[in-house]
Computed example of a mutant assay.
Amino acid sequence: MAKKQYRVPIYFQWIKSPIVLRILFLIIILNISFGTVIHFVEPEEFPLIFDGVWWAIVTTATLGYGDFVPVSITGRIIAIVLILIGTGFVTTYFVMLATNTVKIQNAILEGKVKYQGQDHIVIIGWNERVRETLEQLKEIVNKPMSIVLIDESLKELPIQDIPIHFIKGNSTFDHVLLEANIPKAKIVIITADQSKEEAQADMNTIITLLSVKGLNPNVYTIVEILTSAQLKNADRAGADEIIQTNMLSSYVIINSVMSNGMSNTLLKLLDQLKGSKLTFVDVKEEYLYKTYQELLNELLVQNQLVIGIKRRGETIVNPPLLTEIKEHDRLLIIKS
């Protein structure tokens, strides 16, 4: 025998519905009811039921157009009752509507609203590097981007001139990542937590990476690692790209020691190469088995400078001129 399905009483469904919708429903019923009554009480002044409903709406909204006015004592008593009851409902409705709007706006700023989009970029952790990255993206990207920021330390959205959806919470927890809709994200960037020691910050990054990959194994992840000891662990955890911040800084310092003033030169060079000017491209069929020198001369005519070759995961910068281009190689080029 089939088990009878339990139906939730209409009363409980009504109680659980948003209060704004309940008040709006009462206002509609109230206006229809009073509009119908006034039509039958004064049919000459209100020839149609619609005329009565129109008068009821105008009255409760305190607009007072005066195109329909009750003239009898009974009609005016009905109008008084409508004003006393209906105006209160309408005022309450708009007050609550405004209150809910403010609550939603505050919830968005405070990171309490779930992100519903997809193919977005998720940035985990807030620091000045993230701020600068967003500023650079705003300059070089012409089309709007969907960016979600996850951070536990911020009280509200830290930047207002760039459209960002903020999620407040610990990024190692699945429910926080789900609030950012990680399963449908395109790219996830995990930055190092500057409030922690370097080793602890790297461990937190790797745990976050594992959580992200657990929810979306195919998402492209870029992680910031501070200590060389955790590079292998980040790779094992599934990082698609690892940025070694401390090593990059040490290279700049070494070059500045060996050649004074090099740090400013490197910064200007990187500033000119920001965006898609420095990129990897797949080797075309006509490039196969040519030497690096032949390819260098050929692409220079197209205003493209080849500065390296990526082969089997290793990037060779400025390889020997007689290096032969092979299948599955990728070219590191600078576009003009």
Score class of each variant (00 low, 15 high):
Glu314Tyr: 08
Ser276Tyr: 08
Val188Asp: 02
Lys114Ala: 15
Asn260Met: 08
Trp126Asp: 06
Lys143His: 06
Lys138Tyr: 14
Ile187Thr: 13
Val306Asn: 04
Leu24Tyr: 05
Asn246Cys: 01
His175Pro: 00
Ser171Trp: 08
Thr87Pro: 03
Leu299Ile: 01
Thr227Trp: 02
Thr60Arg: 02
Ser195Val: 09
Gln13Thr: 03
Ser336Gln: 12
Ala185Gly: 11
Pro144Glu: 15
Ala192Gly: 13
Tyr115Thr: 02
Leu269His: 08
Pro70Lys: 09
Tyr251Arg: 12
Val281Lys: 07
Ile182Val: 15
Arg76Ser: 09
Ile121Leu: 15
Val148Trp: 05
Glu286His: 12
Pro47Cys: 11
Gln200Lys: 07
Ile190Thr: 03
Val90Tyr: 10
Val130Gly: 02
Ala234Thr: 07
Ser33Gln: 01
Gly111Asp: 04
Asn216Lys: 09
Ile28Phe: 15
Gln304Pro: 02
Ser17Trp: 02
Leu331Arg: 03
Val176His: 05
Tyr65Leu: 08
Thr172Val: 14
Tyr287Gln: 14
Ser17Lys: 07
Val281Arg: 08
Tyr11Leu: 12
Tyr287Met: 15
Met203Ala: 09
Val148Ala: 08
Asn297Met: 13
Glu135Tyr: 04
Pro47Lys: 15
Leu266Phe: 07
Asn181Gln: 06
Val53Leu: 03
Leu97Ser: 11
Gly88Ile: 10
Phe50Pro: 00
Ala180Glu: 03
Ala98His: 05
Asn127Tyr: 10
His175Asn: 14
Tyr6Ala: 14
His39Thr: 13
Ala229Thr: 10
Asn246Met: 07
Ile222Glu: 03
Leu299Glu: 11
Met96Gln: 11
Asn100Met: 13
Thr191Ala: 14
Ser276Val: 01
Val212Leu: 04
Leu63Thr: 12
Thr245Asp: 04
Asp51Ser: 15
Glu44Leu: 13
Glu294His: 04
Leu322Ile: 11
His328Thr: 12
Glu132Asp: 11
Met247Thr: 02
Leu299Gly: 00
Trp126Lys: 06
Leu209Arg: 05
Glu45Thr: 07
Ile243Gln: 07
Gly35Gln: 10
Ile243Met: 13
Leu137Glu: 10
Leu269Ala: 14
Ile104Cys: 01
Ala2Thr: 09
Ala79Tyr: 05
Ala180Pro: 01
Glu198Arg: 11
Ile222Asn: 04
Leu305Tyr: 09
Glu298Cys: 00
Gln105Val: 04
Thr221His: 10
Pro18Tyr: 06
Ser146Thr: 06
Lys16Thr: 04
Leu267Trp: 02
Lys326Pro: 00
Asn31Gln: 06
Val71Trp: 00
Val41Ser: 14
Leu24Ala: 15
Thr59Gln: 08
Glu179Ser: 10
Asp202Ile: 11
Ile73Glu: 10
Leu97Tyr: 14
Val53Gly: 00
Lys277Val: 07
Ile147Phe: 08
Leu331Val: 10
Thr101Cys: 05
Asn318Met: 13
Asp202Pro: 07
Thr92Tyr: 08
Thr323Tyr: 06
Ile108Asn: 03
Leu84Gly: 03
Pro217Tyr: 09
Pro70Asn: 13
Asp240Thr: 11
Ser256Asp: 12
Met247Arg: 06
Glu198Thr: 13
Val212Gln: 02
Gly75Met: 11
Gly75Glu: 12
Leu299Val: 00
Val223Lys: 02
Ser250Trp: 07
Val71Arg: 09
Val223Ser: 12
Arg312Asn: 15
Leu331Thr: 05
Thr62Trp: 05
Leu157Ala: 01
Gln136Met: 14
Asn255Ala: 12
Glu294Asn: 05
His175Ser: 13
Glu179Lys: 11
Ala199Trp: 09
Asp161Ile: 01
